[in-house]
Design a protein around this nucleic acid. Structure first.
Lengths: 158, 158
DNA sequence: ACTATTAGTTATGTTCTATAGCTATATTCG
DNA sequence: CGAATATAGCTATAGAACATAACTAATAGT
C-alpha cells in the first residue's frame, strides 16, 4: 500500500497530559480498565483450581443456593440462559456439581454442588480473596465499601 | 444422559438474600457487572457512528495526539500492539485516520485523524457522553469523581 | 560489524457475550 | 377440557475483546 510521508512533525499537542486524557472523562473507560485488571488477576488466581471466572461464579452460586435452577442462576449472574449450559456442563464434567431432576417441574434441573465442589469453591474463594487483596492495597476498607456502593448504583442488581 | 432425581427439595438456604450474595464481596465481581452495563451501553451509543468501543477509543487518542504511533497508542490504551493493527486498519478503511511514514524512524507510522475523523469523533463523543449520563443519573458529580479516583487507584494508569 | 531491540504485522486461540431457533414441559384461559 | 402461550434447557453460531508466538524491517547499542 502507498503511504504518504509526514513531512513536518507538526506542533506538539496543545495541552500536555496522558494520551488518553479525553477518554478518562468517561466512567465506562475507567471502569473497563479497572475491570480488565481485576479480571486477568482473578483468572490467574482461579486457574490453579481448574476454574474460570464464569465457572467459579456459577459454582459459588450453586454452593450457596442448593437446588437453584439454571434459569435462576442465569438471572443472578446477569447472563443469557444459553450461556449457562456449557458452564454447567463443564462443572458437571469435573464432578463439582450435579444436575437433578425436579419432580414438581420436569423442565428444570436442580443444581447441587458435590462435596468436592464445595471444597473447591472454598479453596478457590480464598485464593481469589487473597489475589484481590493484593490488587486493592491502595484502598482502605471504607473506600472498598464505597466503591462497591457506587458500582451498585450503576448496576441496579435486584 | 442419566439424571438422578432430587428426592427432597432440601432445607431452604440458611441465610436469605440474593443468590450471588457471596460474590458481591469481590470487588472484581461488582466492577465486572458495572463494566458490562457501561460497555453495552457505550456500544449501542457508538453504533450509529460506525464505531465500536475500541475503534472509538483509538480514534479519540489519535485525534487528541496527532502523529502518535501505534505502539504509543497500544500503551496508552493498555492493549497489545498486535491488536491495534486491525483497529487502525478499520479506521483507515473508512478514512477517519491515515498512516504516515515517519522520516526519522521508518519502522513506525505517525497516525493522524482526517477532518472527517475529527468530526466523527466529536459527534460520537457527544453521543457517548449523553448515553453515559443516562446511566449515571444516580451518581452526583462528586460521586462520579470519587468513582474515577477509586478506579484509578486500582489501575495505576501511568 | 554483530547483536539486541523496537515497530508493525500475521496468524491463531480462548473467553465472554449475544441471538435465533429448537424440544419438552407447564400454565393460562376460553 | 383443549388450544394458545410461556418457560426451562439446549444447540448452533457469531461477534468482539484479549492474549501469545513468530515473523520482517528498521534502528540502536556495543
Amino acid at each position: 500500500m502507498v503511504r504518504k510521508t509526514a513531512d513536518k512533525p507538526e506542533e506538539t499537542p496543545e495541552q500536555a497530559g496522558p494520551l488518553d486524557r479525553h477518554l478518562r472523562d468517561y466512567a465506562g473507560y475507567n471502569i473497563k480498565r479497572a475491570s480488565n485488571i481485576m479480571q486477568s488477576n482473578a483468572a490467574k488466581a482461579l486457574d490453579p483450581y481448574g476454574l474460570r471466572i464464569t465457572t467459579f461464579s456459577a459454582l459459588c452460586v450453586i454452593v450457596d443456593n442448593p437446588d437453584v435452577t439454571q434459569s435462576q442462576l442465569a438471572a443472578a449472574l446477569n447472563m443469557e440462559r444459553s450461556n449457562t449450559v456449557l458452564i454447567i456442563d463443564s462443572l458437571e464434567e469435573i464432578n463439582l456439581i450435579g444436575r437433578f431432576r425436579v419432580p414438581t417441574d420436569r423442565r428444570s434441573y436442580a443444581l447441587r454442588a458435590t462435596l468436592a465442589g464445595i471444597k473447591r469453591r472454598d479453596a478457590a474463594a480464598r485464593a481469589l480473596a487473597k489475589a484481590e487483596e493484593e490488587r486493592l492495597v491502595n484502598l482502605s476498607p471504607e473506600e472498598r465499601a464505597q466503591l462497591a456502593d457506587l458500582l451498585r448504583r450503576i448496576d441496579p442488581l435486584d
